[in-house]
Design a binder for these strands. Structure first.
Length: 329
DNA sequence: TAATTATGACGAC
DNA sequence: TCGTCCTAATTAC
């Protein structure tokens, strides 16, 4: 589920367990063999997320030139972590999967497709696709055999990260990284300054493009994907088809602040929680049921939680856009 | 077992 | 506006 929040969590996981370590880099699948050979044996020296992009910095030693690994998970990429993986209050489990389906522990029971905060389950043998001959011992072995199409494996003495299905995975020089970053809109988790907010407001308020498209444009603002877009527009009471320049300035500012708010929650919980002030009961429901987690996302044809009007589904720019025609008039 | 789906983004018309 | 790329889980048959 690679919207901005997951990538920040992934960056933090690398900062915690890989930065400062020497890393064996390989491409079990073979499709990144050349890139892997350029990084193999270097130390990871930094880990940064900007929007949906992950940047991992490598160097031979303190004074050596830097190389970066840029990864974009696209619509179904994911990182799997295993071994000695730090579990803090916000990154459940020793061993987990982050990205497409969020962070998912091998030792973790998962709430549907989302991250779990609690390590309470048995190992998910189905995910590991263990054959019946395989023993418990092979489950414990380190490093584990790569499962499926692993584009890149990053391996330290004690931790391993497997990347599969990325839309982008490449080795870059520092100036090339700078060029990529220069094309990205602000990420409230990277820059929460008034200047960043102003930049967002100015760009939106000058474009004729519909706000529903602008929020998905990574050069306008970083990290928002299809789920957060729908939910942010609903929370703002904003018709997705409103041209950016017609959205009142205070509404645009509110959008930026709400994105920042939801992103913080997302990084903290590992979930795209978009409904505030839930009761204990509703919160549990939101975590367990797909239909109860969002205001409008994936709720086509269901009654709006606020006004009862049926939620509309439109395909815009090849993506599904959900909204309430009454609350977002 | 096959078809469908997904929380992206890019390039060709 | 399309087609394309990348992978795995879910759903349909």
């Amino acid at each position: 589920m690679p919207e901005g929040h997951s990538v920040h969590r992934i960056a933090r996981q690398f900062a915690l367990n890989f930065v400062g370590h020497r890393v064996a880099v390989s491409s079990p699948q073979g499709r990144f063999a050349h890139g892997a050979s350029r990084l193999d044996g270097l130390h990871m020296t930094d880990s940064q997320a900007i929007g949906k992009q992950l940047f991992l910095e490598f160097a031979a030693d303190e004074d050596a030139p830097r190389l970066w690994l840029r990864v974009h998970l696209g619509i179904y990429g994911a990182w799997d972590f295993a071994g000695d993986i730090t579990a803090d209050a916000t990154t459940a489990s020793a061993g987990g999967r982050m990205g497409q389906t969020g962070m998912r522990g091998v030792d973790t029971v998962v709430g549907e497709h989302e991250d779990s905060l609690h390590s309470i389950g048995a190992p998910r043998r189905t995910r590991l696709r263990m054959s019946e001959q395989e023993t418990e011992q092979s489950l414990e072995a380190f490093p584990p055999e790569p499962i499926g199409q692993v584009r890149v494996r990053l391996l330290t003495d004690t931790a391993v990260a497997d990347l599969r299905g990325p839309t982008a995975c490449e080795v870059l020089e520092p100036d090339e990284v700078a060029a990529v970053i220069a094309r990205l809109g602000p990420d409230p988790l990277v820059d929460d300054s008034k200047a960043a907010e102003d930049r967002f407001v100015e760009v939106i308020r000058r474009k004729p493009t519909r706000i529903g498209l602008l929020l998905m444009d990574q050069s306008v603002v970083s990290g928002i994907g299809n789920v957060y877009r729908a939910e942010l527009l609903y929370r703002a009471g904003l018709n997705p088809h409103t041209p950016g320049r017609d959205v009142p300035e205070d509404v645009v500012r509110a959008l930026w602040r709400d994105w920042s708010h939801l992103l913080h929650i997302g990084v903290q919980t590992g979930q795209m929680l978009t409904m505030d002030d839930l009761s204990e009961e509703d919160y549990a429901k939101a975590l367990s049921s797909r239909d109860d987690r969002h205001w409008v996302y994936r709720r086509a044809g269901l009654p709006c939680r606020t006004c009862g009007t049926n939620i509309v589904l439109e395909v815009v720019a090849a993506r599904k856009l959900y909204w309430c025609p009454r609350c977002q008039a």
